[in-house]
Simulated scan of single mutants.
Amino acid sequence: MTALTSALYYIVIGAVFIYIFIYAYDFFYGEKPEKQIKKIHKHFRKETIKKIDTLEVEPRKYTLYQVTLENGFKKVKLKPGYKVVNIVAKKETKKKQKKGTV
């Protein structure tokens, strides 16, 4: 009986350590592209995705994707931990020129 309980104990503790090791590996060595694509599909679940292109990869920092939708395209940055950040284009501001006497 004690051998059975100790075997179950080692299996449970081993499973916890394996899960922590997989999570730490993803965090320190970058995420898998398949999981990133899944996360993008989950983020845009209400819209129809036509194509996903990888623009820039910076390991352990971010991955930049361009997602082509039915009504246009959006740029998305995925950070470690599969955090999705929408990239918004900057608006160009017109500088007002002062009227001066020349």
Rank of each mutant, 00 (worst) to 15 (best):
Y29W: 07
I52W: 08
I11L: 14
T54Y: 10
G30Q: 00
K79R: 08
I49T: 05
K74N: 09
E47C: 02
T5M: 03
I40T: 02
K35T: 06
V88D: 15
D26S: 04
V88N: 12
K46L: 07
V85M: 14
Y82L: 13
N86Y: 13
K46D: 06
R45T: 12
I87V: 09
K98N: 12
K61F: 12
K79W: 13
G72H: 04
P59H: 01
V102M: 13
V76G: 01
K83A: 10
K96I: 11
F27E: 03
E56L: 12
F28G: 00
P33G: 09
K98E: 14
P33W: 11
L69Y: 05
V84T: 08
Y9E: 14
G14Q: 01
K38W: 05
Q66K: 13
V76K: 00
H41G: 00
F17W: 02
Y25P: 03
Q66M: 14
V67S: 06
K79N: 06
V16Y: 13
L64K: 07
K75L: 11
I49E: 02
Q97T: 15
T48G: 03
V76Y: 00
K95I: 15
L55T: 12
A3Q: 13
T54A: 12
V102P: 13
S6W: 13
T48Y: 04
T48Q: 04
K91I: 12
I18G: 01
I40G: 12
T63I: 08
Y9N: 10
K32V: 06
I37F: 07
L55C: 09
V76F: 02
E70N: 10
F44H: 02
V88P: 10
T48N: 07
L69W: 00
F73N: 07
K83N: 09
K96V: 15
G81K: 01
F44Q: 00
I52K: 07
P80S: 04
E58C: 07
Y10V: 02
V84E: 01
T93W: 14
P33E: 11
K83F: 12
A24M: 12
H43P: 08
F44P: 05
F27D: 02
G100W: 14
H43L: 00
E70W: 08
V57D: 14
V12Q: 05
T2D: 12
L64D: 05
R45M: 09
A15Q: 06
K38E: 09
P80Y: 06
K99C: 11
A3R: 13
K77L: 09
K61Q: 13
D53Y: 03
G14C: 01
I13N: 05
F44Y: 04
I11P: 04
N71I: 07
Y25Q: 09
Y10I: 04
G14H: 00
K90V: 01
G14W: 00
F27K: 04
V67C: 03
